[in-house]
Amino acid sequence: MKGCIDLSSADVLVDGFDRIREEVRAVVDGLSEDQLAWRADEAANSIAWLVWHLSRVQDDHIAGVAGHEQVWTADGWAERFGLPFELDETGYGASADDVAAVRADADLLVAYHEAVHQKTVGYVKTVTDDDLAVVVDENWNPPVTLGVRLVSVISDDLQHVGQAAFVRGLLTRR
């Protein structure tokens, strides 16, 4: 077909993760640690928490399907952040106090996300079309395939970085 570009499923998935990476960088750019920790009210999420959370979820879920240790623990990110959470915490079900505890500067947030992104892309580039149909989680009905899990991570991360962009808009327009 004229004008077609030969893309694999892995190429499309890498593009999705690249878009998250671009948005993470943009949403924290130029903000101070206090601005990143700002919340619209005491029960709202901050930009810092949203970026930390989306990075933690990506790290956790990709490590789970790839069979490698999370970069959070393997590369010392837990120590660098110094958060008062268990090592396996990703932010699901976080309380307002948990959200408030996530304070980090833009460089730290971007560096951790970059490390997660590199590990993610390294894995996703190895995924074949046949791999996408492999069931990776039987705790759901229907069971979750690798393809569904990867798209779920992209979807969740894009929602959270979009929320962070909304918070940034509120913050900068105050």
Rank of each mutant, 00 (worst) to 15 (best):
E69Q: 15
E23R: 15
D29F: 07
G30I: 01
R39K: 14
E86Q: 06
Q118T: 15
T172K: 13
L7Q: 09
I20W: 06
V28E: 05
D131M: 06
V148Y: 00
A10W: 08
V153Y: 00
L132G: 03
A96Q: 07
A165F: 14
A63M: 05
F81I: 06
D88V: 00
V51H: 00
V167F: 12
H117F: 14
D88F: 07
V102S: 05
V99G: 03
V12F: 09
A37T: 09
L13A: 05
D156K: 04
L36K: 08
E86L: 07
T128W: 00
V57G: 02
V110E: 05
A43V: 12
F81Q: 09
A100M: 05
L170Y: 11
R80Q: 13
V57P: 04
A63K: 01
G16L: 07
L150F: 11
V127Q: 12
E42W: 04
A37K: 10
T145P: 07
D59R: 07
E33I: 07
E69K: 14
D156S: 09
H117N: 06
D34F: 04
Q118M: 08
G67V: 07
V57M: 08
D131V: 08
N139Q: 12
L7K: 14
D98F: 04
G93N: 01
H61R: 15
D130Q: 07
N45L: 07
Y123V: 03
D156Q: 12
V161Y: 09
E23L: 10
K2N: 07
D6S: 14
G93M: 02
V14Q: 06
P143I: 10
Q163L: 13
V28K: 01
P142K: 12
V71Y: 03
A94P: 05
T73I: 14
D156N: 15
D105W: 10
F81N: 04
I154F: 08
G162P: 09
A104D: 00
Y123W: 06
Q163K: 12
A165P: 03
S8L: 14
V161H: 04
V167M: 13
L83A: 00
R80C: 00
G82R: 12
G91D: 08
A66C: 03
